[in-house]
């Protein structure tokens, strides 16, 4: 994947990609302790009415917590990939960008769960994620990308699959937006792996 392709995929300009690279060292030190990201604020901005809505239920909070569990795992998966030394630029830049998206999702979900009176599920240890994802089997950049693509596709389908279950339509819309991000990630990863795009329509969420 070329740097220009990377910029096309991530929508980043040269300065932004340099900034991501500068931030890489901080990223590799582990998950940061920063406040609500722009993505979180954006998602929550669309959910303010939802947070006070009577239609949001305890079951909705449970679904959001499952989603938060997925996001914790996705962040860790990209962290494992970045730390593995198997990813080369510009693929590494894309992985870092995608990880930042998942951190945005995490922040938005945590804030929404708390607004709804729930307790956000905590992340597990990196070693737990490494075991669960069989990180020891990753031997090449392609292995990492295949793992990421599998998780992204599964996450897109998971978000699409729970949309009908939400009691609150605002939350269902948020799930749709999250699914769109995951689908975008999968598409980029499949492209990087040289995989064919689906020949048929409606392959996600079925």
């Amino acid at each position: 994947m070329s740097i220009e392709t990377t910029r096309l995929i991530t929508g980043m300009n040269r300065g932004e990609t340099n900034s991501i690279l500068t931030d890489r060292r901080a990223l590799l030190r582990g998950a940061g302790t920063f406040g609500l990201s722009a993505a979180a604020i954006a998602v929550l901005g669309g959910c303010e009415s939802m947070a006070a809505s009577k239609s949001a239920t305890a079951a909705d909070v449970d679904i959001l917590n499952v989603a938060l569990g997925l996001e914790h795992e996705a962040i860790s998966a990209y962290q494992l990939g970045a730390q593995s030394g198997l990813l080369q630029d510009p693929v590494l830049q894309v992985a870092v960008a995608f990880q930042s998206h998942h951190k945005g999702h995490r922040d938005a979900l945590v804030a929404t769960i708390e607004k709804l009176g729930g307790k956000p599920v905590a992340e597990q240890s990196m070693s737990d994620y490494a075991t669960a994802l069989n990180a020891g089997s990753l031997k090449s950049q392609a292995d990492v990308l295949h793992l990421a693509a599998r998780l992204e596709k599964g996450a897109a389908n998971a978000y699409l699959g729970v949309i009908p279950t939400f009691g609150d339509k605002g939350l269902a819309q948020v799930a749709g937006r999250l699914a769109a991000d995951e689908t975008m990630h999968w598409t980029a990863l499949a492209s990087a792996l040289g995989e064919q795009l689906p020949a048929k329509a409606l392959t996600f969420g079925a």
């Binding site: 499952v66 997925l70 795992e73 599964g154 996450a155 998971a158 699959g161």
Partner: peptide, 16 residues
């Protein structure tokens, strides 16, 4: 399974 369940489940590991 590998399309819809794999986000949360695996045959041999507890995940989400």
């Amino acid at each position: 399974y590998n399309s819809r369940c794999i986000a949360c489940h695996a045959p041999d590991a507890n995940r989400v």
